[in-house]
Design a protein around this nucleic acid. Structure first.
Length: 218
DNA sequence: GCGACAG
DNA sequence: ATCTTGTCGC
């Protein structure tokens, strides 16, 4: 698929913050997409210590979740890992992988936060704004926000709150498992984000999209 | 100043 | 993320 590769990249935290505050204005928090026929999962792995980043993208049909396409890309790691700036580390390689796809996904589930971020611009938002593809943030652990305890059954959820603002949701994708931290990325509302994550996590805690991408990136 | 801190 | 053995529980 076509991916705009031209983009400026920060060399330090200060520049990264400026980019986040600039691009966050472009984030759309409401649903802005049509029928979802293809859902993609993206993930990154690091090799050679920390010097090389390898990203993987897997496209699944929706709602049957069958693998239809995939791609991997490797490139020098572009940014160190700093909480709050994960996207600057993973997005470059992910864009390379997306460019190799034959099937353009209608929705992307990211292995990280969306709006549930200190500056409301997590990995999912960043990838969404740069590609204009609807995205959802589905992280395995918490970055920021507080929430109440939630029931053990699959599908139960509680709002994730920061400074009195609902920034996402804590969602139990399977009975008795640790919950997932879900938030909208770009062009996807929180209710829809919860719905899609739940429908993609049909059998395990992690969405099938993330599981497939994770397997490919290793 | 003391913790917290996506992957 | 990655480095790594055994071990608790269904």
């Amino acid at each position: 698929m076509k991916v705009h590769q031209e983009r400026g990249w920060p060399n330090n935290a200060e520049e990264a913050i400026a980019i986040q505050q600039q691009l966050r204005k472009q984030v759309i928090t409401t649903d802005d997409f049509g029928t979802v026929k293809y859902v993609a999962g993206v993930d990154a792995a690091y090799i050679e210590g920390d010097s090389i980043t390898r990203a993987a993208v897997v496209v699944l049909s929706f709602p049957d979740l069958q693998v239809k396409d995939s791609a991997i890309a490797t490139r020098p790691t572009s940014f160190p890992y700093v909480p709050g700036f994960l996207s600057f580390r993973e997005v470059p390689a992910v864009l390379d992988a997306l460019a190799k796809l034959s099937i353009a996904p209608d929705l992307i589930l990211c292995d990280g936060q969306g709006i549930a971020h200190p500056h409301r611009f997590g990995l999912a938002c960043h990838l969404g704004v740069l590609t204009e593809i609807p995205t959802i943030g589905a992280a395995k652990t918490l970055l920021i926000g507080k929430h109440a305890e939630l029931p053990l059954e699959r599908g139960s959820w509680q709002p994730l709150i920061d400074n009195g603002e609902t920034i996402g949701a804590v969602l139990r994708t399977q009975k008795g498992v640790k919950p997932m931290y879900v938030s909208g990325g770009h062009r996807v509302s929180l209710p829809s984000a919860i719905d899609y994550v739940l429908r993609c996590a049909a059998k395990y805690r992690l969405p099938e999209t993330t599981r497939m991408a994770d397997r490919l990136s290793r």
